[in-house]
Each structure stands twice: as structure tokens, then as C-alpha cells.
Write a protein that binds this DNA or RNA. Structure first.
Length: 474
RNA sequence: UCCCCGGUAGCUCAGCUGGUUAGAGCGGGUGACUGUUAAUCACUAGGUCGUUGGUUCGAGUCCGACCCGGGGAGCCA
């Protein structure tokens, strides 16, 4: 907004105008993009302008006496950019309290070919909008998503800050495969057409940029544990990369993850934290984005607001993995995948627990050792680990976490059992050698959280530029 | 990666068991009308029916291959 000269009145956001923060009778400068234009042959046009500051538009009333009325204003179509100087006045029409009586409209950019401008004032399919990801922020839905994404991120930082957590920026480039599972994206500056080889015929990564094999991180957890065992309460919030060939509405190759890690905490503390965290973020979003949330409730998911309120009000249901298995076995449901102790919960099982049995988020704890990661703390029964999953209706696993194995000897055994190289994880083991303490942490998929908040069904619609297998346009 | 479904105008879709010049709504243009609200009405322009082989007298329609998209599953957050 640097186009303002001293001759122009102060810039007013649409949000501030509609909130009556500018007195009627005062002159303002409004800048934004045209949503619709309707002409009255009585001699003026209505231009609805949006600047992204809020869901609604400000109505500009432009009289035909304006010098550029015929050759510019009547050519404004959806998507055109303008800045307008005018007076805030009470609206004579219905549907808005105030509007702008135009003094001047300066056209910054017309839409070159209105016939092919993709964004129209109508319902578009999400698939189509993904193909115009550079223009979809101009729709009501993606404007609302963008504001809610921002508000949720702020709410997350605020929650942790108020609880005394430090935000730690763990590296995006890593040398270790954090969990011994999952496909990684390689980071390399080697010439793919002419790879250097060692004497034994393998690729010589010593000649690569970092002098060794490197990848994009799949989790900041291992790195942040080190800071946890110094700062006590820490969290990461940043991009994460998985090269899995996952083609679902719940997976991205590049997504954002929140990972708190707490020292002197056990699984119960962690489950409590997860519950407080979700409730706080939901509550924050509901108060800060009331208008956008009302839009989602109206257009996307009727329960969008009420289900968040329900989550905020009611205690999370906590159950043992063993208990969950018993409930599923006794359910009388026909599952495609049979349920028995020792198998991982399938999507259909999670859905039954959250959507049918509990009708609320469920925290499942203490999973069998065999189906969980090496760093999770072995329980005294020697067959389960102190892991937890928070399952949300309609989304599935929204949070996955555990108490970490803090005992050096037990961790070493578990790593050997998982076939991990102790040398690679030497620094991670050091943390158990030098002043180890019980600690616990979880990972939350930020986009999955946004899916749950907005009611949008596809994860590609809550991130600005989705990256999925075979797809990284824009 | 597996299983389903789909690809027709700028967008959203219709097009029945293959049959002559491929339709509608919205959007665009023109005009009428109106303090309008995704305005309304009339007229108008706009399509190599995803690509490519094949079957057929004839293919948007049937078959094969490929590409792309969606839904579900696995993997997970």
C-alpha cells in the first residue's frame, strides 16, 4: 500500500470500514479487487470491493458524472484492481450499513480478458480452483481459509508462549532419517547426469555439498529433544517433507507440523497438554475468526462451529489401546480389516471409535510395542509403549505422540531391535547419557487441524500451494 | 502403490441402448430495466467432446493404451 501520496486520505481496510471504525462523512482511500459490478441506468454503478481483510466486501457507489465512468468504471469486471477515494456514508440500500460514495476511482489493473478470468462470483469446484492456485485466494472460501490458517498459527504460538514454551527452529536439511521409516527427499548439488563414484562403485557423497548424504526433514522431533533437555518446554512449528506416494485427501508431500516436547513429563501430562492445546486453539479461532467460521458453517460444514464448541466444552475421552480393541471387537461391526490385540488401528476402526462410539475426539494410549517407533518409552508390561494418538471425527489421526524412552540401555536395545545404526544416533543417545530425564512430546499436522476447523474435506485446500505426488505447479 | 469414478464452451453440468447442424445455466459482449445485493429480462459470441490407436456405413457415446483429476485404501501428521 505504498501508492498513497500526501494528497490522499488515509487507507481504510474493508474490515475497518464494515466495523464502523471510520466515521460517516469522513473521506477514505480503499484499495482492492473488484468482486462484482452492477450498473443502474439511473446513472451510477455499484462496485463490490474486497481487499482480503475480511470476508465481506465494501460497496462503492460510482456516479456517471465521474470523468472515467464510461471508459473505465463500466469496464470493471471481476478481478480488476482499483483504488478509490470516497466518503463513508450510510447505505441507502439493504445488505450493508455503510458504503463509499466515490469521488475518484483509479484503475490499477483491468482484467485483460474477462471472458477467461477463472474466478467468477459463483460456486467453483475445488478441483478447478487447485488448478488456479495463484488466483484462488480471491475467492471467499480461500480468503477465509487463509485468514483462519493465520489465526490458528498465531493461536498456537500464543498458547505455547503463555505456557512458557520456547519455539525452536529445527533444521529443514538433515542427515538422519529421523524415524527409520518413511521416504525422504534427497538434498544434493551433485550433477545427476554425471555422478561421482567411489572406488567401490557407489555414489561418492563426500563430494556432495555437505560431504555426506542429506535429506529434507521428516520431523524435527529428534533435534528438538536436545533443546527440551535444556529448555524444559519447547516446540517446533515448520515445514516437513515426506516422499511417500500417498494419494489421499489427508496427505501432502510438504506440510507443516507442530511438535511440542516437554521435560519431566509423562504420557498423562502429554495427553493433558494435547487436550488443553486443541481447546485453546479452537477457542481462539472461534473468537478471532467468527465471521469466517460462520461462512464455513453456512457453506461447507453445518457443524463447523458447534463441533468445535463441543470439543472445547467436553473432556476428551481417553482409552487404552486394549480397551479400544475390546470396544471394536464387541461392536458387532463388520470391518474390512479384522481387529485383534497387536494390530494397528485402521482408518475404519478410528472412524468407528470417534464417529460412532464416542462421537468426539478420542485419545488412545499405550499401543503395542511392535507397531510403534523406537524412541517411544517401553511400559512396565514390556509389551506396550507409552504412545498416544488423538483421533478426531472426520479426520482421523490429528496428533500422534509419546513419552520418550529416556533409559539408555532400554533405548539401545530398542534401536538394535529396529535395526538402527547406533553411531548415526550417537548424539541422540548422548542425551540419555548426560542428565537424562523423562520427557514426552507429540506431533500435530497443522493442515489436518485446519481441515477439522474449517470442515473442508481435502488437505490440498487448506495450504496455499499443495505439493502432492506428480503435482507441484506454481 | 492398489481399488473405484471421472475428463464435453471461461466455469458448473446434461447428452438415454452409437445415427444428421453437440445443449443449458452461470460468466463475457450488446441492449432494456432497476438503490442494486451471485439483480432481472432479451439478443449474441464461444466447443479438435483429455490424448492416441481400434471396432463400425457412422463414435461425445463402444473397446485398448496412455495422460490428468477426484473418491476410498495403505503409509502417516
Amino acid at each position: 500500500m505504498s501508492t498513497q501520496s500526501s494528497a490522499l486520505p488515509p487507507v481504510a481496510s474493508v474490515k475497518a470500514l464494515l466495523a464502523n471504525e471510520h466515521a460517516q462523512g469522513s473521506d477514505v482511500l480503499v484499495q482492492g479487487w473488484v468482486r462484482t459490478r452492477r450498473d443502474s441506468k439511473a446513472g451510477f454503478s455499484f462496485v463490490h470491493l474486497n481487499d482480503g481483510s475480511c470476508l465481506n466486501n465494501i460497496q462503492l457507489v460510482a456516479d456517471q458524472a465521474l470523468p472515467n465512468y464510461q471508459n473505465e468504471i463500466l469496464k470493471l469486471t471481476s478481478g480488476s484492481s482499483i483504488q478509490c477515494v470516497g466518503t463513508v456514508v450510510e447505505s441507502k440500500g439493504k445488505g450493508q450499513s455503510v458504503e463509499i460514495q466515490v469521488k475518484t476511482i483509479e484503475v490499477m489493473g483491468l482484467v485483460e480478458d474477462p471472458d477467461t478470468y477463472p474466478i467468477q462470483p459463483k460456486q467453483h469446484s475445488y478441483e478447478f480452483l487447485r488448478s488456479v492456485a495463484h488466483l484462488r485466494p480471491r475467492t471467499n472460501t480461500f480468503g477465509a481459509v487463509t485468514r483462519i490458517r493465520h489465526a490458528a498459527a498465531q493461536a498456537i504460538h500464543r498458547f505455547f508462549d503463555e505456557q512458557g514454551y520456547c519455539w525452536v527452529n529445527t533444521p529443514i536439511i538433515t542427515a538422519s532419517d529421523a524415524e527409520g521409516a518413511g521416504q525422504l527427499f534427497r538434498v544434493s548439488t551433485l550433477d545427476l547426469a554425471n555422478l561421482p563414484k567411489t572406488d567401490s562403485g557407489h555414489i561418492d557423497f563426500a563430494q556432495d555439498f555437505f560431504g555426506q548424504e542429506t535429506f529434507l526433514t521428516v520431523s524435527g522431533q529428534l533435534n528438538v529433544e536436545a533443546f527440551c533437555l535444556a529448555m524444559s518446554k519447547v516446540y517446533t512449528f515448520g515445514p516437513t517433507f515426506r516422499a511417500e506416494n500417498s494419494n489421499t485427501s489427508r496427505h501432502l508431500a510438504e506440510f507443516w507440523m507442530v511438535e511440542p516436547e516437554v521435560a519431566f513429563a509423562d504420557l498423562n501430562d502429554l495427553a493433558h497438554l494435547a487436550e488443553q492445546f486443541l481447546k485453546s486453539v479452537f477457542s481462539d479461532v472461534l473468537t478471532h475468526c467468527a465471521e469466517d467460521m460462520a461462512f464455513f458453517a453456512d457453506r461447507i460444514e453445518p457443524e463447523a462451529i458447534t463441533r468445535l464448541e463441543k470439543v472445547i466444552e467436553s473432556p476428551f475421552i481417553r482409552m487404552d489401546y486394549g480397551e479400544a480393541i475390546k470396544i471394536l471387537e464387541a461392536s458387532g461391526q463388520k470391518f474390512e480389516y479384522p481387529v485383534s490385540w497387536g494390530t494397528d488401528l485402521q482408518t475404519e476402526h478410528e472412524r468407528f471409535l470417534t464417529e460412532v462410539h464416542c462421537k468426539a475426539p478420542v485419545v488412545v494410549v499405550n499401543y503395542p510395542d511392535a507397531i510403534k517407533a523406537f524412541y517411544m518409552r517401553l511400559n512396565d508390561d514390556n509389551e506396550t509403549v507409552a504412545a498416544m494418538d488423538v483421533l478426531a471425527p472426520g479426520i482421523g489421526e490429528i496428533i500422534g505422540g509419546s513419552q520418550r524412552e529416556e533409559r539408555l540401555d532400554v533405548l539401545q536395545k530398542r534401536m538394535a531391535h529396529h535395526g538402527l545404526d547406533a553411531e548415526t544416533y550417537r548424539w541422540f543417545l548422548d542425551l540419555r547419557r548426560y542428565g537424562t530425564v523423562p520427557h514426552a512430546g507429540f506431533g500435530l499436522g497443522f493442515e489436518r487441524l485446519l481441515n477439522y476447523i474449517t470442515g473442508l474435506g481435502n488437505i490440498r485446500d487448506v495450504i496455499p500451494y499443495p505439493r502432492t505426488p506428480k503435482s507441484a505447479p506454481f
